[in-house]
Simulated assay, not measured.
Amino acid sequence: MGSVAQAASGTALVSGSVEGLALDAEATGEVARHVLDAADTVARQSASIGAEVVNRFLATLRAA
């Protein structure tokens, strides 16, 4: 009977570990989505700043 109890205990341990891993994977995915959103925001801002620099440079050339 001891072997059955040990097997059940081991199964519960593994099940808990798998559930923990699933939660960790979900949290990692959520963090990755936030990082991707932040990177997208930075890319858009960078493009906007780049366009502004070009526009100002061209305006300076036209005024010269």
Rank of each mutant, 00 (worst) to 15 (best):
A5Y: 05
A12V: 08
V14E: 12
A64W: 14
V42Y: 05
A64S: 11
I49N: 03
M1G: 07
G2I: 07
A59S: 15
T41G: 00
A27N: 07
S17Q: 12
D24I: 01
A7M: 02
S9F: 05
M1S: 12
A64F: 11
A25W: 02
A27Y: 00
S3F: 04
D40W: 04
V53P: 05
S46C: 04
I49Q: 08
A32C: 06
A12N: 09
L23S: 13
S46T: 15
G20E: 11
G10D: 09
G16M: 03
D37P: 01
L58W: 09
Q45F: 06
R62T: 05
H34F: 10
T28V: 06
L36T: 14
L61M: 14
V42H: 01
A63P: 00
E52A: 10
L13N: 13
V31S: 11
D24Q: 11
A47H: 07
R44Q: 06
G50D: 13
S15N: 08
R33W: 00
A25P: 00
V42C: 04
G2R: 09
L23P: 00
S46Q: 15
Q6K: 14
T41E: 01
A43S: 12
R62C: 01
A12P: 00
L23E: 05
S3Q: 12
A12C: 04
V18E: 07
A47I: 10
V31N: 14
L23I: 09
V35W: 04
S9P: 01
Q45P: 00
D40I: 06
G29V: 02
A47F: 08
E52P: 02
A22W: 02
A39L: 15
A22H: 08
A22R: 12
D24S: 14
V53L: 15
A25Y: 06
L36Q: 13
S9V: 05
V35M: 10
A51N: 14
I49F: 13
A32E: 06
A43M: 10
E30S: 08
L21A: 13
V18D: 10
R56F: 12
T41N: 01
Q6L: 07
E26N: 14
V53W: 10
G20P: 00
S9D: 06
G29K: 07
N55Q: 15
G20F: 01
E26C: 12
G10S: 13
L36F: 10
L58Q: 14
A63Y: 13
R62Y: 05
N55G: 06
S3P: 02
R33H: 03
R33C: 03
V54I: 04
A47C: 08
A43H: 07
T41M: 02
V4M: 06
S17N: 09
G10W: 03
A43P: 03
A51G: 13
A5G: 06
D40F: 05
E52C: 00
A39S: 15
S9A: 07
A32M: 07
T41P: 00
L13Y: 12
S17H: 08
G50C: 10
E30R: 03
T28A: 15
A12L: 08
R44T: 04
A5W: 03
A27Q: 07
V4K: 03
E19C: 10
A64V: 14
R62E: 03
A22F: 04
S46A: 14
V4L: 10
A64C: 11
V4H: 03
G16C: 07
A25E: 04
A25V: 10
I49P: 02
D40P: 01
A22I: 11
Q6N: 10
L23T: 11
